[in-house]
Structures are given as C-alpha cells and as structure tokens.
Amino acid sequence: MTIRETIETTALIDNHAHPVEPLSETDVRERFAQWFTEGDLEYRDARHTFNYQAALGVLAERFDVDAGPGDDAFERELLESRATVDRHEYTRDCIASTNTEVILADDGFPDTSPAEFREYTDADVYPLLRLESLAESLIDDHAEFGAFEDALVDRMASALEGEYVALKTIVAYRRGLNVGTVDRADARAAFADVRSGWDGRLEHPRLLDYVIHRACEVAADYDAPIQFHAGFGDPDAHPRYVDPTHLVECIEAHPETSVVVLHGAYPYVGQAGYVTATYPNVYLDLSLAIPFAQHGSERVVSTAMELAPTTKLLYGSDGFSVPELYVLAARRFRDALASTLEGAVADGIVTESYAETVAENVLRENALGLYDL
C-alpha cells in the first residue's frame, strides 16, 4: 500500500470539533458563506474566500450540479438545494464520507449539545468541557468566591469522571494566552469585581487566569488533556496575543498537564511547532488552519513537522455548525499530509514505511492514546 493509499483509508479520530446546528432556509440562502470564514467580513467578501468556493464544490458534488464555482447562478442553485436538506440525514452522509470514527465535540458552541449531535452522525461522539461556559454558569449561581471555586472544581471533576475526555479553554480570545499566576486572594477580589457588574460574559484577566490554573490542576489529577484555542478564530481575538509562545509560563507551571494547542496556532504554526518540540506535555492540533487555509494546507503540515515530533501532532476538523466543514477538513488534511510525507520520502528524510506509520499516528493513533479513548 502506498503512503497516499494508507492516508486515504485510515479512519479519522477528530480531536477537536463542534456539533452541527439547525439552519433556517433563509440562513442558507443569504448567509451561508459566513460559516466558511472566521473573520468579521462583509458577506460580499466572505463569498470570495477559497474555503467557501471549495464548499460550493462539495455542494456541486452532493447535488450533481454542472457549473463552476464563481458563477452566481451556479451558487444560487446550490444554495436552493442546500436550504431544503434533511439536517440529520445530510449531516450523517457528509460525515460518513470522511471516514471519521470518533469526534471530540465542544459542549460550549453552538447550542446543539454533543448528546444531540450523536443523533445525526454514526461516529462516536465524546464531549469536551468548555471552561468559560462553565465558569459563567457558576457565576450566575454563586455569590461567594469559595462556593464558586468549589463548584468549579466539582463540575470539572465529575465531567472527567464521566464521559468527558478533556477540558477546553478559549482564554486566548478573552484575554490572550499570556496566562499569569494569580493567588487566591487576587482571584477572590477579581470575583467580587466580576459579580458587581456581571453581564454574563467572563473577561476579567485575573479570574480567568485563576480558573485556567485550577483547570490544569484538575486535568492533571485525571490524566486528561486541556485544549487551548490558539491562533486565529473568533473575531474578538487579538492577533498578537494568540501566539502560543505566550502560553509558556502556564505550560511550565503545570508539567504534569497535557496541553493541546489548537488550530495549528495559525498563522503562528512555526511557533506552535517550536513549543510542541520543546515541552514534553504539549501537543499540536492542526484543525481550522486546515481547511481554512485551503491551498496553504500542505505548508501548515510541513511547517508543523519541521520541529514537532510526529507523535504529538493531531488531526482535527474544528467542524462547526455545517457538515461541509467536516468534509473540507478531511479532504484537505489527507491530501496535505500525503504530499508532505511523499516529499519527505523523495528527499530521503524518511522511509516509506516510516511515513505510513506517521500518517496513522497523526490521523488517529496519537489521539487514541492522548485522550485514552
């Protein structure tokens, strides 16, 4: 079997994704492109990303429409067909076409829960506990810091004792990845500040930092990873503070905690590979960067492999809301991984047999071991 054949036939473990959500027919006809860009773009611009154009290609295959992306009439016809699909059947078919065996799904976005997600995919779905959503719900329910902290730890522990396989944080988008050390007195004062003007969204740096450090401790106790969004993503993220090198102090403070840097930290892929190669407890997920980078996908994989051990690289789709993202991610990732490994063999860096082992590790085996699936 060739490297490419191995890659094409290996069942995927998607270590980072979100459930698919119901979309109205109007959403599909008028706003569909917005699910294929992470920027706060005008719709006329969102339609002209390569990622969206590739999504139209997926729709053309699904609905057997003859025309080329870039044609407005072609797009309207595709969206008319997409607007009336049965969400459950369509999602199941899309994900089945990717040969994905397991999906780790964030319980914090969208409103569809991982449990509901199981109803429209044949893949096994395991939930990830989003820390900011948890903390916000507990701030609503607890007026005193001590009660809040106890409930936070109890909820994380009970989740990891149950079906949850990891914790997850979007602190990068709330205050950046430069998570600092906060003592309990500072955290108590920060909690009081938050409660006094509580608006439902946790952004206070000191309280966020304290939550993250407590989460790292709980994750270590249960030998569970904690995922950190890094690089591009939500439009409220500051482009400089999502560089994973900002996370080093937190990583060093918790050497027993497995840290997963998400999104390939795009565009900081080289920095993410460096951090992954430096710290034994750090792993690198390449979701969202692939497929959003589209024709840059091979560069993302190749850059990650410059330094990072291939035993610490993870496949992920970061598919969210629409199932086409799962399809795009699987296609682009498989192709980029195959091209990168074929190039390494041609250059005499690795053997073909070793490259096949790398492929299986990145696509599934690394995640199976890390998350104890």
Rank of each mutant, 00 (worst) to 15 (best):
N281D: 04
F228S: 06
V362H: 03
D372R: 15
P235T: 06
D40K: 14
A359D: 02
L152G: 02
R29H: 09
V85S: 05
E77C: 05
I290S: 04
L131P: 00
D141E: 13
Y43V: 14
V58F: 06
P205H: 08
Y120Q: 02
L288P: 03
R214G: 01
T181M: 12
Y241I: 11
Y126R: 11
T6A: 01
P69D: 07
P267K: 06
H295W: 12
F74G: 04
L307Y: 14
V102R: 13
P309I: 10
E365N: 12
G180Y: 02
R130V: 00
V358I: 14
E360N: 07
L202P: 05
D193K: 13
Y283N: 01
V171Q: 01
V28M: 02
G343I: 05
E61Q: 13
G270S: 14
H16Q: 08
L202F: 14
G68S: 15
D186L: 08
I95G: 03
E324N: 11
F109R: 07
A330F: 00
D335N: 12
A215H: 10
F148H: 11
S196Y: 10
D347Y: 00
R331M: 06
L79Y: 08
Y164R: 12
G162C: 03
A219D: 04
R31V: 08
S133T: 15
D111V: 13
D221W: 05
A190V: 11
A237L: 06
M156R: 08
L167T: 06
T181C: 05
L41W: 12
H204G: 02
T98L: 05
Y164L: 01
Y354T: 10
L160F: 04
I13Y: 07
V182P: 01
D93G: 04
Y371C: 09
E324G: 12
A55T: 13
D40V: 10
D66L: 11
E324F: 09
V301S: 01
E161T: 11
D193V: 10
G162T: 14
R331D: 13
M1S: 11
D236Y: 14
S137D: 15
Q34M: 14
Y371T: 12
Y164I: 14
A192C: 09
G200L: 02
V194P: 02
F117N: 10
L373Q: 03
A151S: 15
D243Y: 07
Y43C: 09
F63D: 04
L152K: 06
Y120P: 00
R331P: 01
